[in-house]
Computed example of a mutant assay.
Amino acid sequence: MPRADARRNLDALLEAAKQEFTTHGVDVPVRAIAARAGVGTATLYRHFPLRSDLIAAVFRREIDDVTAMAARLGEQHEPGEALELWARRYTRFVATKHGLGAALHSGDPAYSRLREYFESNAAPALQRLLNSAAEAGVIRDDVDPLELISAIANLSLPAPGGGTERADRMVGLLLDGLRYGARATSG
């Protein structure tokens, strides 16, 4: 188990890298990431010897956050609201992923298992939200989690000029479509 200061450094590096990748792309100088994290470049390289290690770690952390968020939202909100809040969080995740997109599709073996990791973690978490919302009668009952994830990702492509307003509006329309034909299931 890493020491507390090492854990803090790791968390700071991952958050700094996510922000830098989102803003400047994955080719941002490591000095910028280390500076944002408040650590030296030697600390960054100790945790992530290769840039691909850092990119994969940022992506995996985002997957874990999106997955955990689904469970929390399902416990804290009504089914329809939980699904909508999760979709909005996933939209922000996609914005982060666009900063990583070129690297993730580069063929580098460091990224080869990330899609499987994403699908085996995020899809079941979303399926639970979809099941709850369908049982409550707030969405239709034939929504596949991977299809919804893909649709949200496609609707979340950055608009010219940046910003997430367009993506939020488009995902809202998609969710409205899921409500069409909804029926509460008898239990």
Score class of each variant (00 low, 15 high):
R3K: 11
A4F: 04
R7H: 08
L13I: 03
A17F: 02
Q19N: 10
E20I: 02
E20C: 10
T23G: 03
G25L: 02
D27G: 15
V28E: 02
A34E: 02
A34G: 03
T41H: 09
T41D: 09
A42Q: 06
T43R: 09
L44E: 05
R46E: 02
F48R: 11
P49W: 02
P49D: 05
R51E: 03
R51I: 03
S52D: 05
L54C: 04
A56T: 03
V58M: 06
F59S: 07
R60E: 12
R61V: 01
E62Q: 07
D65W: 10
V66M: 15
A70P: 14
G74Q: 05
G74D: 01
Q76T: 11
E78I: 11
E78W: 14
P79C: 00
G80S: 01
G80R: 14
E81F: 11
E81W: 13
E81Q: 15
L85F: 03
R89H: 15
T91I: 04
R92H: 12
F93H: 15
V94E: 02
T96I: 09
L100V: 05
S106V: 00
G107W: 01
D108I: 01
P109V: 04
A110Q: 01
R115Y: 08
E116C: 04
F118P: 06
F118W: 10
A122Q: 08
A123G: 07
A123C: 07
P124W: 00
P124G: 04
A125G: 05
Q127F: 02
R128V: 09
L129Q: 01
L129V: 00
L130Y: 08
N131H: 14
S132L: 13
A133G: 09
A133E: 07
A134N: 12
A134M: 13
G137D: 00
I139V: 15
R140Q: 08
D141H: 09
D142L: 05
D142W: 01
D142N: 12
D144S: 12
L146F: 10
A153F: 09
N154G: 15
L155Q: 00
S156M: 11
P158G: 01
G162D: 08
T164N: 11
R166F: 03
R166M: 09
A167P: 15
D168Y: 11
G172Y: 08
L174P: 06
R179Q: 12
R179T: 07
Y180V: 13
S186P: 12
G187I: 04
